[in-house]
Nucleic acid binder design. Sequence first.
RNA 1: GGGAAGAUACCAAAGUGGCCAACUGGGGCAGACUGUAAAUCUGCUGUCUGACGACUUCGGAGGUUCGAAUCCUCCUCUUCCCA
Length: 379
Amino acid sequence: MKFLLEKTDAASLARCGTVTTDHGVIQTPIFMPVGTVGSVKGVYHRDLVEDVRAQIILGNTYHLYLRPGLDVLRKAGGLHRFEGWDGPILTDSGGFQVFSLSPIRKLTPQGCTFSSHIDGSSHTFTPENNVDTQRIIGADIVMALDECCPGDADFRYAEKSLRLTQEWLDRFSARFEATEPLYGHSQTMFPIIQGCVYPELRKRAVDHALSLDCDLHGGYAIGGLAVGEPVEKMYEMLELVCPLLPSGKPRYLMGVGTPVNILEGIARGIDMFDCVMPTRNGRNGMLFTWNGIMNMRNEKWKEDFSPIDPEGASFVDRKYSRAYLRHLFISGEMFAGMIASEHNLAFYLDLVRQARAHILEGDFIRWKDSVVPKLANRL
RNA sequence: GGGAAGAUACCAAAGUGGCCAACUGGGGCAGACUGUAAAUCUGCUGUCUGACGACUUCGGAGGUUCGAAUCCUCCUCUUCCCA
């Protein structure tokens, strides 16, 4: 994987660049649709490519490990071939599941033991077997195994959690260096900077990550944000961490976020984002647009036969009416979630595409400040 | 013409003397969702009130009772069966 930094904004830390993988080129800043179990829920790959214009999608190690399982993935020739996606893929390690499934997991010195949410069976992730698993899945970018610390954790807990994440990173990196990709294309790994909302811990996390063999690490992720802490804290952490990271590598803010979060993240130097919001909230009836958010279940759309989003980037925006989409949601039709997911993803990709254009143009901050107030409107 | 069943809030549908402003579902309204255990979840949904609470309701009119959506009488309407 290579990263080319093309331009840094004069008025902010915003930047744009190009990530090159064996499965294609990614123009940053970028939003990556989440495809947890090998599917971006409700959206065809064809539409993901041609309409949404996605450049890279995610998969999840925890979920894919449990189902379909490593035997199937190995026999399939890796996740790309299994799901029929020719572009780049990034896999999360399962660190977030270690956090979100905490009632059914146990942290040990070796790793993390958890009960499957599917059948209750017991499994253990260690940094070592997590590398092996992600080799079998075969993503272009693999994430280090970490513990995602809750946003309201006290310092003691956060420090202890960070120590665990750091120890896991050492072991993960060592294993990654000692193993090879299985399917003929190269893989890179991103360490994850944790430290909750504590500047001291965040700094410590960066120092530690940078002390390792940097050739191994294609980029750096910032994790443990948008997990319950105030949004200002998240921005503070970005302002602290991004300047400490090498400018020649992409920075990935994990799990974020709202359209505003993304623009504010870009302004603070973030290059890559992912979030379930466009798909999950879409399935739940929420549409993101340049003029604000819409709850498509609301009665006010009942006889609104105008296009879903006249300014939208997706063909569904002009193809279908608001009244029709509302009807589909009220009727519980799966098509509703499909249309909404496609619209939202197309919007998110349009958002980062325009951000990139304005960074290149040189007026990013002015543009951002003009669109942000509208994005949170309720239509 | 004869017989039977029924009428409850926006719809459907429980409730058959006090625990009923009235179960439940739908619909409606609002909210939540941030590295997906989510096509999910949470409130509210007679009127007035910020709330406590007050007031008016269960086809209509009358009656029994301390007390009625629930019991009685008549009326109106609906559905079904037989002629």
